[in-house]
Amino acid sequence: MSKTVGIPKGLLYYDFYPMWKTFFEGVGAKVVVSQDTNKKILDEGVKNCVEDACLPVKTYVGHVINLKEKNVDYIFIPRIVSVERKKYLCSKFLGLPDFIKSLIGDLPPIIDIEINYYKNNDEFTQKEFIKVGRMFGKTEDQSLKAYFEATHQQKKFESLLKKGLTNLEALKVWEGKNLVKEESNYDLKIAVIAHPYDIMDEYISMGIIEKLKNMGAQVYTMEMLERDLILEGASMLSKEMFWNYERDILGAGLYFLKQKNVDGVIMVSAFGCGPNSMTEELLERIFKREKEVPFMLITIDEHSGEDGIMTRLEAFTDLLRFNKKAVMV
């Protein structure tokens, strides 16, 4: 029987699941994903994590515990150092497997390979994946083949994003599921800028994206933007950010501000997020100075209430509609 590998549904799951799943299946493993975030998962995460950690990391801890309870043979917790040349991820990703192993006892073996494209070559990361292949009795060639198929599937997934699907939608389509047909009578365009794990997890984000859609807003995320547009936005700053995701946040925000092709921008960040404290501060100041596009910040935490978010989203969409009318008159 093939071995099972658990993939926690948190953090970069929303960005790299197609690649990881394809690879593991390619080397003969069976992939098990933790459940969608629910109260139990979040509570377990909060209970077992460091009190002041950010919400997404706490949630991730809950997902690891969920997989442990599912008795998988391995859990995949990669050490993601860099996914782009000369760019890093936040410190929490750099130490993630070590951190998780210290927090939770009696875990099954952790696959904690290092994903690191800082030096702009695939070679390092390939070798790491070959190591994984070896754990499943695969030769270097077999693992490489799985790796290339994985990157190919990843590209397919990413091209779905560029067609305007959110990460969640793109994951569904990639897995061959149908999307619920949307009525397209949107009268507002809103960019929601955030780490995908903050807005794609419908439980911790309290379904912000769905709520906006139901309020008649077409939603744009930064993953939908082509890379050169993000870089165009980011180039308005005197120094490029060294975290690729924060660079994307800044770049997307400034791009929308410059093009004015949306009615409003919402930035969502998680309670206790260090990197976002920098990007939020900058974006909020720049948007305020320019006064061209309305901007709103939403911080999600384990206590934020659904009502509060609803009220704020309603107020924001009302404001945008009011602005639109004012322009037309």
């Binding site: 002041d52 210290s102 997020c273």
Partner: peptide, 14 residues
């Protein structure tokens, strides 16, 4: 909110 030290905090408890 210090990211590296929060990671360290979890680890040194062990």
């Amino acid at each position: 909110t210090c990211t590296p030290e929060i990671v360290a905090q979890g680890i040194i408890a062990k």
